[in-house]
Design a protein around this nucleic acid. Structure first.
Ligand SMILES: [Mn+2]
Ligand SMILES: [Mn+2]
Ligand SMILES: [Mn+2]
Ligand SMILES: [Mn+2]
Lengths: 220, 220
DNA sequence: ATAAAAAGTTAGACAAGTCTAAAAATAATT
DNA sequence: AATTATTTTTAGACTTGTCTAACTTTTTAT
């Protein structure tokens, strides 16, 4: 039975290594978990002893298939709880992350699957992130960001890269939600900001590069 | 912010001291928490330092009003989660205790109240135990046990004293549930077992003293 | 009242997880 | 290739919570 801390480390390694595929830096893990590199070194040794990661000194960490399984299950649990919190308990999408961070660690053979069934097997969490199925299969994002959409093209918002409360509240203020249709009107070369218009809305407005780089979209 | 362990100790002290009102023994706490008396001594000192209990060496522990508040909140959380697990996730009443034991410790200002509202403000958990309200008020059991019911009298099952899986499964096998109406047919002086008949059931059967001492009932 | 039993506490050890400060290895520059 | 700079690891300390073994206090029985 793994501890909260161990699961958090595995999840961090999973999330960092997801798109690179390479071994994961000590410093990156420390940053992601708001801890110190020395703590990460300690933990990495323990995880390696438990065959959850492959690790050679100074060479970073890679999840074993066992470690990956644990990480994906934790992600599944996290995202299902987020759905529960938003859909059932009426939390907003910017409030659920910290709570799910705790709930994901509840230990049970059956809880997550029962929750999944209760929620009618949702495919995505409130931030548009895909929910792994019981077997651990995940349909990852296609990684098309709003910043890559050409002028005069339209797209639908399908996810957020950054799930921080600050970012989500900014989206709320601009009425940008999952499913929103956005048309790119123009681009500003100086700061890479873009001018956009929401479907069903006369007024257009400006979005910074930091924002457009954190919105997953699907071309129409 | 209190730890899981601290909350568990406070809950144990609360539950033990509930009906006696007196200060609570070290050994009793240790037994309740499946730990050693020396560990309890250690923890009791910490809880006393934090003004959660009043404690003098060798004299046992009593909750302060602050400690009681924490304990009642934890009990509230525990019982609401049990309702959720049974009503929403379709767990049986003998499966939920260990899970609620974990869920009760999730830290949030709003979670328990939101859960309460989602569940439509239930008054009792799946074992018939009263759920404290937001302010900490509890309607305790009247403490009438099946063993105290006279011959030829009938009563309704309103709660179980022992929530162990073994006991609850025994009740299931005998079709005894919350709300069941039981008539006492006869009593056996030798072992204090009683002969009972369920309403709507021709056949009568025998119940041991251990069982009748663990069923809260309401006289009809 | 004294001795024995029970209950409760302390001392010392351990594991998990974290930290700071110092040392070692690797990577980047000149 | 040698020197910095960066990254990573170790050493040692600390906290929480637990344990065993030994000791002290309180209670019970003689
Ligand atoms: Mn977490
Ligand atoms: Mn999410
Ligand atoms: Mn608990
Ligand atoms: Mn219960």
């Amino acid at each position: 039975m793994l501890s909260h801390a161990e699961e958090n480390y595995l999840k961090a390694i999973y999330n960092i290594g997801l798109h690179t595929g390479k071994s994961v830096n000590t410093n990156l893990i420390a940053e992601k978990l708001s801890t110190k590199p020395s703590s990460v070194s300690d933990m990495i040794k323990r995880l390696s002893d438990k065959k959850l990661i492959d690790y050679k000194k100074y060479q970073g960490a890679i999840l074993t298939s066992y470690g990956k399984k644990v990480a994906v299950n934790t992600v599944r649990s996290h995202r299902l709880w987020e759905v529960f919190l938003v859909d059932c308990l009426n939390y907003r999408w910017d409030e659920v992350h910290e709570l799910a961070e705790q709930l994901e660690h509840i230990k049970s053979d059956s809880l997550v699957d029962k929750l999944d069934a209760f929620l009618k097997f949702p495919t995505h969490d409130p931030h548009g992130d895909p929910i792994p199925d019981k077997k651990g299969n995940v349909n990852h994002h296609k990684n098309v960001m709003l910043s890559s959409i050409n002028i005069n093209e339209s797209c639908i918002v399908v996810g957020v890269k950054d799930s921080s409360s600050a970012f989500l509240k900014l989206l709320d203020r601009n009425s940008i939600a999952l499913g929103s249709t956005i048309k790119v009107i123009s681009k500003e070369p100086f700061d890479n900001s873009i001018h956009v218009k929401m479907k069903g809305n006369k007024q257009s407005f400006t979005i910074s590069q930091q924002v457009s780089n954190n919105l997953f979209v699907k071309k129409i």
